[in-house]
């Protein structure tokens, strides 16, 4: 016979609306044993996810299928342990990668499209960077599906896209250096977000107009939590597409670029709360 457990709360039916840990029940004011252990199990999984390594070869092949060439780069943080404690190193390329990137960009010999306000030429509309960040699972699972939803439309609109940079032990700001090397109008960084207990594979999207090393977060726009159970890749791609075009048209990014997509088109799911009667 299965032993009796402390029951969940009477509103347990609401769990179908959220992955949040609601209606857990209580013993006194404390967490029941099984809810407590379920939490510990999720934490253990997230801890293990932080230290997983990316299958870069498989990712490169998936990009190939989308007609995107790629090149492998590494940040100046040589190991995961260094990466976790030295964000400065994760924000810049190591010397061999920097050299390889410069050579690669020069070999493309892309014709200038226009000039930035600061006089630098623009040779690509968009540079794409995929960095492992804090979750290898995120880029392995979400990066290619997301790009499959937005790259074809941008190409149709005539956008010239640079080869995709795959960066090991990379942080968001490393995209600025890469975007500048490709002389791109915009750099888009796809990066594994810190794993949550319920989301070990959540992808973050960041883009910067007129990228150059040394920019801060105020110059970037962000879409976070991209994964099937969160902001679904197809929907996120639609939002990204609109924002990228607006950024390109208005020649800016960051806090000055407001996301004005109508709310009902912005996100999936229900628009009204059951708590109020209207």
């Amino acid at each position: 016979m299965k032993p009796a457990r402390t029951p969940p709360d009477p509103w347990v039916t609401l769990r179908r609306f959220t992955a949040a840990r609601i209606a857990l029940g209580r013993t006194g004011v404390s967490l029941p044993t099984h809810a407590q252990l379920a939490f510990q199990a999720a934490h253990a999984a997230a801890r293990d996810a932080v230290h997983a390594t990316t299958d870069w070869g498989a990712l490169a092949r998936a990009l190939d299928d989308l007609g995107l060439t790629s090149l492998r780069l590494t940040s100046a943080a040589a190991t995961r342990s260094v990466y976790l404690q030295r964000p400065d190193l994760g924000r810049r390329l190591d010397a061999p990668s920097r050299e390889r990137l410069a050579g690669h960009a020069a070999a493309l010999n892309a014709a200038p499209l226009e000039q930035l306000a600061d006089g630098r030429p623009v040779r690509h509309d968009l540079a794409i960077v995929i960095a492992d960040g804090l979750s290898a699972f995120a880029i392995e699972r979400q990066a290619a599906p997301l790009l499959a939803h937005c790259v074809p439309a941008l190409r149709e609109a005539g956008w010239r896209i640079a080869p995709v940079a795959l960066v090991e032990q990379g942080r968001v700001a490393i995209g600025d250096e890469i975007g500048a090397a490709f002389e791109a109008a915009i750099v888009l960084v796809l990066i594994g977000e810190r794993p949550g207990l319920s989301s070990p594979d959540s992808l973050g999207l960041y883009f910067t107009h007129a990228p150059r090393a040394g920019l801060t977060d105020a110059a970037r726009n962000c879409i976070s939590n991209v994964r099937p159970e969160g902001f679904a890749p197809a929907l996120a791609a639609r939002r990204l597409d609109a924002l990228l075009r607006e950024s390109r048209r208005r020649r800016l990014s960051g806090v000055a670029l407001k996301d004005e997509t109508p709310a009902d088109a912005a996100l999936g799911g229900t628009a009204h709360s059951f708590l109020t009667s209207d």
Binding site: D9, W11, L14, T18, I22, F231, L267, G269, S273, F274
Partner: peptide, 14 residues
């Protein structure tokens, strides 16, 4: 994660 109204309401009520 998606600002879903019912999902938020569920956590508010909880």
């Amino acid at each position: 994660p998606t600002d879903d109204a019912a999902g938020i309401a569920a956590s508010v009520l909880d």
